[in-house]
Write a protein that binds this DNA or RNA. Structure first.
Lengths: 226, 226
DNA sequence: AACAGACCTGACCAATCAGTCAAGGTTATT
DNA sequence: AATAACCTTGACTGATTGGTCAGGTCTGTT
């Protein structure tokens, strides 16, 4: 009687399980982003996932464990979006590409960004360990890269931490404060507006650290790669 | 038997009422910032204000009304911090001073900033009207000022909105993500670090819009005014 | 076909929470 | 001193929530 929804056809047991878990995580991400951990109810998540509430507890033992999985998933995306940071050689290409990808994540993973922001804002009660290990290591490594650029005279000397925070803040703002931006804009941002915002952020940040960006500096999604 | 706490001595009825209300608002701000609207309980707020819960409901009819008052209070501070924005004549002085004040608010009103961020992130269910009226008007007016600066050739032409969002994002990040910053820093930021972060933000943003800042551009709290 | 194990779910708790209330205390006014 | 208005509070309540569970269904295996 169930199983009518178009989503899950058939597949191996393991595949279906994975699909259901992903559906629940997607639903949970939306609900947690909209209402916060305390404001979200398992019933609302169940409704969003089109499952009876008891079924949720079959896949995820508790609300907190479900939440943890959601936050962990975001965290991964969030770090991966930065991977291109150190595949480029100089600050101009590396930073403009990193910023562009983070802006893209803000546009496409709005809910995830919000859940992450929420978690950190409330003191990271669930994922504090991630902050102290993975994030710290990652950050230290990128700080080292920036420091080397400075030593090589490729950019103005600024404390790399403040620069990183500026990039994080500016790009994530477009996800976390999307509602405010859209209210002021009287509409969601268009493709052109996203591109313009990205170009402006890149331009200001690069010039701000003493790099006069080439016209094509702000990475465009479908541009020539190599 | 109550009234032992050092806070409220005696005063006129109206004075004491105001004092109690402020104490409740302060406590509510902390609790809402830490747990979000849904996660905060009236009992926790009452405890933080050192009052029995029933007393809260004597001063504030409902949790939602109390929350609204908290958000409104923040909103006011947040706009006032920007007032100096248009008391200066050129972009260099105006922006660097605005940024410095916003950084200061982030440091001193961390809880308030978080509550505001929370509210907007969840779609501004309580103060949507403020966004559409007061904030929009305020923003439009500042955008006009920036546009005039651009027309006068005082700064590089960038869409004023993206610039405003950059300033908001960067400065508020130090409040909303204070926990993350402090974790990475292994300690709260020192006075010197706050000053350095402020200088860096000012420097990058000003240079980013084509202004080579004078050494004293980043406004220092106790610096010579006129 | 028969069996086992995975999956599903309606109905049900115990706990928690926002909000109420009635009774008692305090202060200002006359 | 009497009165009225304001303030305080412990005890209570109805509603909601996270989580449980027994009994059912479906799927793959022998």
């Amino acid at each position: 009687m169930a199983q009518i929804e178009g989503a899950e056809k058939s597949g191996s047991r393991a595949e279906m399980r994975e699909e259901t878990e992903r559906a629940i995580l997607d639903a949970a991400e939306r609900v947690f982003a909209e209402h916060g951990f305390g404001g979200a109810t398992m019933q609302a998540i169940a409704d969003a996932a089109r499952l009876p509430k008891a079924n949720l507890h079959y896949y995820f033992a508790s609300k907190e464990k479900l939440y943890r999985r959601v936050v962990e998933r975001i965290f991964t995306v969030w770090l991966e979006a930065a991977e291109s940071f150190d595949t480029e050689s100089g600050p101009e290409a590396a930073l403009s590409r990193y910023i562009s990808r983070k802006m893209q994540v803000s546009r496409e993973q709005r809910h995830g960004s919000k859940v992450w922001a929420n978690e950190v804002m409330h003191g990271a009660p669930i994922i504090q360990d991630y902050l102290e290990t993975t994030l710290r290591d990652w950050t230290d490594s990128r700080i080292g890269v920036i420091r080397r650029w400075i030593d090589q005279g490729l950019m103005r000397p600024v404390d790399p931490r403040w620069l990183m925070y500026m990039i994080w803040a500016t790009t994530q703002h477009y996800a976390d404060f999307a509602h405010q931006i859209e209210t002021l804009n009287q509409a969601p941002l268009s493709d052109a507006q996203w591109q313009d915002a990205t170009d402006t952020v890149c331009g200001i940040l690069l010039r701000g650290i003493g790099i006069d960006p080439a016209p094509e500096a702000a990475f465009k999604p479908a541009g020539p790669a190599a």
